[in-house]
Design a protein around this nucleic acid. Structure first.
Length: 265
DNA sequence: GTTGACACCTGGACGC
DNA sequence: TGCGTCCAGGTGTCAA
């Protein structure tokens, strides 16, 4: 569930709390989350400190003096700051020990991943990632990427190699705001459609960041921050559109998709 | 090269 | 109450 807005919120909150603090120890309780050899992972982080935290798409990038720790929260990954002596809770899989506190990675479904890479590998690591959906992406770029595809726009916008950061919730919202039916193929889009999609992406994601993301279903907050953008959703998880039409919920590309058949042509 | 299916996981909702 | 089944979804992998 964490999409660009939620990851940005986690990054902003973490930056205030963990930068320039020496990592004293790391406890790994579920090692499949770590893509590296565990000894390599620990040896290169312990006695180091995070000097910056960046975000690209849905990835968090913790920077140390000579490495980057890439963290992807996937479906339910969260970070919590807790006291050193607080009991380890169920689903807390990775614990970073600092002098006076711990940073805990919590992931109910264990889908999240972390990988430590050397600084020169950063560019190649994100080779297949498109530009952020709320950045200054050019409509020509999007048009070139999708206008030759006989694939539904819903699926194309979820493809992180085209634009990064949009997940299931915000793609539904972006297509609704653009008045575009999610079943429409990329090959049916015009340059104007691409402009509308990008403009809606920017507005929706920036608003979602402002309201610290979306908190829906069973998903709880990270770092004690509860997003409020769910109050502004127009179609995702809704029963009726503002126009009065019943919102349709159907699977497109295996993903639950909400749309208004009247407003989205 | 493209596309769809599936695996990875767990908890909640639901039906029986 | 308890059990079984389905669903949720981001990404990587594999087969067609």
């Amino acid at each position: 569930m964490p999409e660009l807005a939620e990851v940005q919120t986690v990054r902003d909150t973490l930056k205030k709390q963990v930068l320039r603090k020496k990592i004293k120890d790391i406890k790994v309780l579920y090692d499949k989350i770590i893509e590296n050899d565990l000894n390599y992972f620990k040896n290169n982080l312990i006695n180091n400190e995070f000097i910056d935290i960046k975000r690209k798409g849905k990835y968090l990038i913790f920077e140390t003096e000579d490495k980057y720790l890439i963290s992807h929260l996937r479906m339910e990954g969260k970070y919590f700051i807790k006291g050193k002596d607080e009991e380890i809770q169920k689903h807390e899989h990775i614990i970073f020990y600092f002098d006076n506190f711990t940073l805990r990675y919590h992931d109910t479904r264990k889908f999240g991943r972390m990988e430590l890479i050397s600084k020169d590998k950063l560019e190649s690591y994100f080779n297949n990632l498109g530009p952020d959906a709320n950045s200054d992406v050019n409509a020509d770029y999007l048009f070139k990427k999708i206008s030759n595809k006989d694939i539904p726009l819903k699926t194309l916008l979820l493809d992180q190699s085209i634009v990064a950061g949009l997940g299931n919730i915000y793609v539904d919202e972006v297509l609704y705001a653009s008045k575009i039916n999610p079943y429409r193929f990329g090959s049916s889009t015009t340059l104007k459609d691409c402009q509308n999609i990008l403009s809606a992406s920017k507005e929706i994601l920036n608003n979602a960041i402002k309201y610290k993301g979306t908190t829906i279903r069973s998903y709880t907050s990270s770092l004690g921050v509860y997003g409020e953008y769910q109050n502004f959703l127009c179609v995702h998880t809704k029963d009726f559109c503002k126009c009065g039409e019943k919102i349709k919920k159907e699977k497109i590309g295996g993903r639950s998709t909400y749309y208004c058949p009247k407003c989205q042509k």
